[in-house]
């Protein structure tokens, strides 16, 4: 299945597909979860928030054809 994945800020360097900007197109196996994607990229264990289609999602959620996953790591300071 085809899924768009956006990795923001320090996570953008973990993309494995070439391209510009935050978002890349990926071909994933049916049943792939957000947690599987995080493991596939080897994202660091740090605070992060995930969205699918612009709505909050749990990392245990399965992705579906045509969806857009966004992963954002807030950084400290305020």
């Amino acid at each position: 299945m085809k899924v768009d994945i956006a990795l923001f800020a320090s996570l953008s360097g973990f993309h494995t597909e070439a391209g510009d900007g935050h978002t890349r197109h990926y071909e994933l196996a049916p049943g792939t979860t957000i947690a599987d994607v995080i493991a596939m990229f080897g994202l660091p264990d740090q605070p992060r928030i995930v969205f699918v289609g612009g709505r909050h999602a749990e990392e245990t959620s399965e992705l579906h054809e045509g969806e857009r996953l966004a992963i954002f790591p807030p950084v400290a300071g305020g």
Binding site: I49, H56, E58, A76
Partner: peptide, 18 residues
């Protein structure tokens, strides 16, 4: 959200989003 810790920012974003 105007806190300083990244962990608390993530907590707020997570809870509000859910």
């Amino acid at each position: 959200e105007a806190v300083d810790s990244a962990e608390t920012k993530a907590l707020i974003l997570h809870l509000c989003g859910r």
